[in-house]
Write a protein that binds this DNA or RNA. Structure first.
Lengths: 346, 346
DNA sequence: TTGAAAGCGCTACCAT
DNA sequence: ATGGTAGCGCTTTCAA
């Protein structure tokens, strides 16, 4: 590994000129620059990371804290990690992984030893212990997800409340009077931050719109198809003419299988809309309408905020809620037996 | 963030003594040490990471390169990442994530700028492009998985060949004359390194033992239960009295469901053994016998090797195959209609 | 048992 | 447009 001195010598310039030629922070004569670039190539020079961290003010590393609990939904999580890494790299940043017990201990550690410029928090729990840590440390921290106590924090997330409300509105507008919510796993409502938000918003908006609403979870495991089918069945038995799906990939498939088994067509007999899904819905047996959770949106924004927090104009603390987008695929229609759409009044 | 000078001053010693007190690389008088430790605590001192990287010879960071392809099985992958991070941290190392296109580009980059002490390679493909990179760079690299061309590389993995052969032996010894292999997804046999190894070994050992053997994949997606059931059905229709399962969680469940649907009991009517599973098999409707893949074993060993490669006694290149372990749960028995066990000869 | 000081390889300020 | 150089905060000789 060649160092800056060798490059300078090879190019016949001083090391400061090499540094400036590479950073572009000072104009360099075209010819000089050419010679430097050639020397860099010849020698395979790359500025030493440790030296840059020490001399410069940036480490070019973000920490990503993620407990990786057993109940973490792996595919969704992977999407977020990937999206974060890509967004970070686009801004010349690397990602340092803080998992397991290091999700917490590591935050203090890397904040104290200056290994990272900022910390991104994934897999946020309603009562997340990392909230307290974030307040203690000086390192800029961005939450991807909203903990209950978020006072003074910078948080990014899909506006799940708006997404859920929108789904209810779409169904209500189509004429449905009774809907069901097929929710996440039982533990998700304790360990994760957004399932309760969706549930609360669906229930609240349904009440506002005067709809009957019921909900059920999808069992203990993400892959518990039987529980998903059972829940969907119960909601339908209870009179629901439309289902809001806020659950895993497998559960979506299971619900559609249950509808199929009952000879119910979508959307003629039952309307279906998915909220907050981050997987490919078009691969389902029936591509359903969706208000998706797009990991790239959250993660891009989180990285942008982290970057801003390093600059002079520190952004305000507070929630950054990403407006939901509705993807129509024709799985919402008027409930069976209703008058043609357009006349909703009595 | 206090620095070593402030600690030294507060403790009334020189900075070298502080350094030695913390590193333990030189004896320090008990009383001196006490004063230093107190100063460290008071000031919340933590040695600057960049300065250590520059002055010392170690960065205390490993890179973990993982493409995170769309077809990567997320849960299994997550287990490996977690196991790697834990093993690394146990040795005072952090993990830097290199995903997506950075899985390759990042290797050269961090090797060139000295950001990491070693590189761990995950999600190894048979014809992995990272093999060539590993040979080019000076940074020690450990593969967790075995690429086809592994000459001169340090690779760690479960001995899948032995595991598969063992499974066949167990079934042959129990008296089975015709077995079936329920394999991974179609793409896994192209993109991943171990599925072909298992398949080849099962077929080879079956031939050696004079068994009839057939195999089928589990479709395009990991969660394709229908494909898994179909494959299991075909194998049984073909006369198999025992099944070797080398597939995803969902596929295991699907196969058991197919057996159940056919009214076949395990192990009275069909024997079942799982090979290379890294999830919790005891959670299945029928806890099946297993020769598991244990991420912790591979990752611990990989980290140990990486550490060794940093020392003076560089380990030999070559494969480190972890001997498989058989977990019996009573799902292997003699095939139906066979004479009582013990008498196999004719 | 301890201290002084020479780097590690950069960045960025001060000169010219 | 370029060069000289003072740090950044630590590790590790060399001395005492």
């Amino acid at each position: 590994m060649a160092n800056i001195n060798e490059v300078a010598e090879a190019a016949g310039v001083s090391i400061s000129t090499v540094s400036y030629a590479l950073s572009g922070k000072r104009p360099v004569a075209p010819d000089t620059r050419r010679r430097i670039e050639e020397a860099v190539r010849e020698l395979g020079y790359s500025p030493n990371a440790g030296a840059r961290m020490l001399a410069g003010s940036r480490t070019q590393i973000f920490a990503l804290t993620e407990p990786l609990r057993k109940d973490t939904h792996a595919p969704t999580h992977m999407s977020f990690v990937l999206a974060t890494a890509v967004a970070a790299r686009r801004n010349d940043y690397d990602i340092l992984l803080l998992t397991d017990e290091q999700a917490q201990a590591g935050m203090s550690r890397v904040a104290a030893n200056g290994l990272v410029d900022a910390i991104l928090v994934l897999d946020v729990a309603p009562d997340d212990a990392r909230v307290a840590l974030a307040r203690q440390i000086a390192t800029p921290t961005v939450f991807i997800g909203i903990p209950d106590d978020n006072e003074g924090l910078v948080c990014v997330d899909l506006d799940f409340e708006a997404a859920a409300a929108r789904a209810v509105d779409l169904l209500a507008d189509a004429g449905h009077r009774s809907i069901g919510l097929v929710g996440q796993t039982d533990t998700a409502y304790v360990k994760s931050n957004f399932p309760p938000r969706v549930r609360a918003s669906v229930l609240a908006r349904a009440a506002e719109r005067g709809l009957e609403v019921a909900y059920g979870t999808t069992g203990k495991k993400h892959a518990d198809r039987a529980a998903a089918r059972r829940t969907a069945g119960q909601l339908l038995d209870g009179g629901a003419t439309a289902l809001v799906l806020h659950c895993a990939d497998e559960a979506h498939a299971a619900v559609l299988a249950e509808l199929d088994a009952r000879g119910l067509r979508v959307p003629e007999d039952v309307s279906v809309i998915s909220v907050g899904a981050s997987f490919d819905l078009s691969a389902l047996s029936v591509p359903v309408d969706s208000i998706p959770l797009v990991p790239e949106e959250s993660c891009d924004l989180a990285v942008d905020l982290a970057l801003e927090m390093l600059g002079p104009s520190r952004p305000e603390p507070g929630l950054r809620l990403i407006p939901p987008t509705y993807e129509s695929r024709g799985t919402i229609a008027a409930p069976p037996g209703s008058r043609p759409s357009g006349a909703a009044a009595d």
